[in-house]
Amino acid sequence: MGTVQEISPGATLAEKVEWLIRNLWPADAGPPRNNVETAGAIARATGEDISSTTVWKLRTGRQENPQLKTLTALATFFGVPIGYFGFPGETRSIDEDLTLQALRRDVEQGVIRPEVLRALVDLSAEARWVVDEMILSAAAADRHRRSG
């Protein structure tokens, strides 16, 4: 699905659902093209009947307090702990774990070359800081470009 975008610590439920769809979509489910396909894939994998309207509401922030069964189905489908959706105290470490999981998947799929990550580890602290700043600037520019 492309390069991994980090989820912000204060992300809304809509942002978290969208992040999952873009970054942790199961490879065996086939990429979703719309909310109908997204709902269908979740329903087939979990047995929980989720409508395309529910998916749309979750993705657009029009449903901020979904039923526990809906969150459980999402957590099961994406392979994340239910706490990812915002139970107090857990979210930051879960977000970091999921970012690492998505990065690992991108390395396995060849989106990110393993030698690049190894080279990053070998850099001095000063050189790593320069690379960090370049990556953060590129990510900000990419977000700005995609938002309009």
Rank of each mutant, 00 (worst) to 15 (best):
K57Q: 12
L58E: 01
R59K: 12
G61Q: 09
R62L: 03
E64Y: 00
E64H: 04
E64I: 05
N65E: 15
P66H: 06
Q67M: 04
L68A: 11
L68C: 04
T70Q: 03
T70G: 02
T70P: 01
L71G: 01
L71T: 02
T72N: 07
A73E: 00
A73P: 00
A75N: 06
G79Q: 13
P81I: 12
Y84T: 03
G86V: 03
F87A: 13
P88A: 07
G89K: 11
G89V: 09
E90T: 11
E90R: 10
E90C: 08
E90S: 07
T91P: 00
S93K: 13
S93P: 03
I94M: 02
D95S: 09
D95M: 06
D95A: 07
D97N: 14
A102D: 04
A102L: 03
R104M: 13
D106S: 13
V107R: 05
Q109E: 11
I112A: 02
I112H: 04
R113H: 09
R113S: 10
V116E: 15
L117P: 06
L117M: 08
L117K: 05
R118F: 10
R118W: 11
A119V: 06
A119G: 15
D122A: 15
D122S: 13
L123N: 11
L123H: 07
A125V: 14
A125E: 14
E126V: 10
A127Q: 08
R128S: 13
R128M: 12
W129G: 07
W129Y: 07
V130P: 03
D132S: 12
D132M: 06
E133Y: 11
E133R: 15
E133C: 14
E133G: 09
M134E: 13
M134I: 14
I135S: 04
I135H: 05
I135M: 06
L136T: 09
S137Y: 10
S137G: 15
S137N: 13
A138Y: 15
